[in-house]
Amino acid sequence: MKNKPYLSIVSAGLCTPVGTDLLSATAVIRAGLDHFRETDFRDTINQPIIGSQLYDCQIWGPARLIALAHNVIDESLRNIAVDKKYIVVCLLLPEEQRLGFFPQWSKMIADAVLGDFHTSSIAFSRGKAGIGEALPFLQRTLLEQTAQVALLVGCDSYFNAETIRHFMNENRLLHSENSDGFIPGEGAAAVALALADRTHNQVTILGFDTQLEAAHILQTKLPLRVKSLSEAIDHACQRSHLLLSDTQFHISDASGEAFYFKEISLAITRTLKEKVEHYPHYLIAKSLGETGAASSVMILATLFEWMKHPEGPGNSGLMLSCADSGERTAIILQYQGVE
């Protein structure tokens, strides 16, 4: 910690169907509750699709994601007295090639969200894969002292007719004729990051790594060997100077498909070299459904509030993010109290 190489979460914002601010949303997530309801979308036999939707928000298209992003940014910066031009923002958005999310939307959202912030602010339209690019970028920016605070923001929504139809046709969506699928969700999250110090209670990112898996869910030829996820976990542990057995839990963005649960289970079995009595796997999708580009930031925001709680999951943990395109990101986090 002497050279301050680590990123620490100093504040957060969260907007979800189960709560539109950090405290209310994390309370519901910790309790394992949800707000799943029948939506206006229908499956192949005209049965309603279950979703996790912000039902009171009547804005659609890119304006919906812009509103969500502004909501969490305002909450996360509420107690940070730094001019926006000294805050660098990394905005995670849905994949540009996702059906129902049009390429021009990325620029519209980025222009509306990033305009007032540091000139180095950037948007990644890569869905869940964006976290693997965002963390190195933000760490490098803070170490170079080109900005005082870094803000990681993610927002996404699966509630678009073309998007729903695509995932239903690909047998990826949970509906009356497919039990091995995910529940569509939406929401946004933001975490403010600074270089770690010992003056505040904070959740610190001790190590992270991203590897590319060839045997991902979108291909059918290669067998599942979890090589890349296992490597990402090992490298994140090495950089954090912790063994995986030193962590008390793992949490992931898996959202209902058996492929990802099998992959994570095999990777943990391979990398957890010392036997531990209890190593729970927590899921935000249990309360929120599939939240795509927002999911990794939602996990970080949730852990920021949850890990400092007396009945939290533990002082250190492993976070996993697995993108459909093969990117596998592992992050080791630790709650740091004031000495």
Rank of each mutant, 00 (worst) to 15 (best):
K4D: 07
L7Y: 04
L7N: 03
S8D: 00
I9R: 01
I9F: 02
G19C: 12
T26D: 04
A27W: 02
L33I: 09
E38L: 14
F41C: 03
D43Q: 12
I45F: 14
I50M: 07
G51F: 00
S52P: 00
Q53T: 07
D56E: 10
C57T: 06
Q58P: 02
G61Q: 06
G61T: 06
N71R: 15
D74L: 11
R78Q: 15
A81D: 15
V82S: 07
D83Y: 04
C90D: 07
E95W: 01
R98P: 03
F102G: 06
A110R: 13
A110P: 12
D111R: 11
L114P: 14
S120N: 14
S121H: 12
I122Y: 15
A123T: 07
G127P: 03
K128L: 13
G130C: 02
I131G: 08
G132S: 13
L135P: 08
F137Y: 13
R140N: 06
L142T: 02
T146P: 03
A150Y: 03
C155Q: 09
D156P: 08
F159K: 01
F159L: 07
N160C: 03
I164N: 00
M168H: 06
L173D: 00
D180C: 09
G185P: 11
G187V: 09
A190K: 14
A192L: 12
L193Y: 04
A196C: 11
T199A: 08
Q202I: 12
T204L: 08
F208G: 04
Q211M: 11
Q211R: 14
L212H: 15
I217G: 03
T220W: 04
T220R: 10
T220H: 10
K221I: 05
L224T: 02
L229Y: 02
D234V: 11
D234Y: 08
R239F: 13
D246H: 09
Q248M: 14
D253N: 11
S255N: 14
E257R: 08
A258C: 11
Y260M: 06
S265K: 04
L266I: 03
I268Q: 01
K273Q: 13
K275W: 10
V276E: 11
E277M: 13
K286T: 04
L288K: 01
T291L: 04
G292H: 12
V297W: 08
M298A: 05
M307L: 12
M307C: 11
M307E: 07
P310W: 13
N315K: 13
G317L: 07
L320Y: 11
L320M: 15
S321L: 13
D324I: 03
S325W: 01
S325L: 03
G326W: 07
Q336K: 10
